[in-house]
Nucleic acid binder design. Sequence first.
DNA 1: GAGTGGTCTAGACCACAGA
DNA 2: CTGTGGTCTAGACCACTCG
Lengths: 255, 255
Amino acid sequence: MQKLKNFEHRPQYRQVADVIRADVEAGTYPRGSQMPGERELAARYGVTHSVINRALQVLRGEDILRAEVGRGTYVRGVPVIHSARMIRYVRELRESGGARGAFDYEIRQLGMEPRSDVTVSRISPPLRIADVLGTDDVILRDRRMWADDVPVQFAPGYVPWDIAGGTQIEQRDSGPGGIISRLAELGYPQVKITESVRVRRAEDDERKFLRLEKDMPVIEVFHVGWAASGRAIEVSLNVQPAYLWVNEYEWRIDT
Amino acid sequence: MQKLKNFEHRPQYRQVADVIRADVEAGTYPRGSQMPGERELAARYGVTHSVINRALQVLRGEDILRAEVGRGTYVRGVPVIHSARMIRYVRELRESGGARGAFDYEIRQLGMEPRSDVTVSRISPPLRIADVLGTDDVILRDRRMWADDVPVQFAPGYVPWDIAGGTQIEQRDSGPGGIISRLAELGYPQVKITESVRVRRAEDDERKFLRLEKDMPVIEVFHVGWAASGRAIEVSLNVQPAYLWVNEYEWRIDT
DNA sequence: GAGTGGTCTAGACCACAGA
DNA sequence: CTGTGGTCTAGACCACTCG
């Protein structure tokens, strides 16, 4: 890497980052593979260890690379995932493939293998969840999702115990149509959905599971299902690496 | 700042960042004000210039601070803005307050003063816009929005020239109900809306207007309005500093 | 213990803004 | 011109992982 005195006022570490980014896209460093060590890269690109470290920091910020201390730096392997937020709540589609089916479909579209895992427990939820549900005695369905064994989404779901306690909602497999269908059978069909989409920094547990860097942004979709009575009967969070997902909404207008 | 040999394995620059963040929240460095110089902060917190620079880098990444070379570092002054995405397309509300009214309302909610500005031109749009609209001869309504004179959203809108050329849509003030009402009057009422929400790094012009740091994320809401014929008649982008906005959706379910 | 990424220093220089 | 944030070096040490 030439010094060039930065006359183009593009710092070295960014120039290096640009080159490495291009090399990644060109396949020099294949998807999922381990990068050479920072000191070797320093030699290869003719700069200091610090500069390489800074350059990789940029690429990590772009979610192109992922570093693990003591082990090495790796190239990311998952392309952008599109998610049709509203289709998954159409009953027919849900029951002939399931809520799980929406995620499965989205991942298979990309030629990857979906996987998901649920852990059920009875807990006292975070304050803002309790506020919405009107109780702090809830069932937590802690769901994690992978694509080709790479973690891609963290999705805890909460249902009031007084509604769903002792039902199939407490089973890991909530049956055809998922908890929405079960809630409907229990006399709580959902009539309205609200979703708030925000971006924030990942919390520690999310970072750990999603293998995100320290200050990486995540998308949080705060999902609430409402019964006809006006009571919120189901809250779930979808926490997604910010650069990995596109969430899609579609609605009709009365004319 | 104690050296402490980092036994809590929390690097100095993060400790410093934590302290400064707390100081900002405590009002030591008021909203909108200028921070002391990095070298003075270095002295004040007992660390190197480099460490302070790194610490501020963290806070800039959190959108708490904003730096300008040659001038100084400033504290951000706008709280999170909530945006009800779907309400703004209800005709009655739109025509009694306007599309502009939704933004105005959201900002006034925060006790701030909204402002927006539109520049109209006839252009050949980016490829993905042309693809959706089915033409590369379009009217661009380049809209910028501020809250208390702080830029908060960048929102270019595109309408096919063959539909809207020579109409009020080419005026800066598109009249009551905005371009959606005008399009309806022209025989193109919108019957369906689609929005894709993604997060990406800000592009240069967006960064400049929104006063964002180099690798800051933005939310991009890709909005499309569809006519009954199935033709897309209006595309707009909403580009928002990622940590500044929460976008809200709400819909009913057929039971 | 060797190798990994991550941090830090002390000091230097850069581009830029503004008086 | 001075002061600002930003970058870079050379070298050191840290915490961590793995054989």
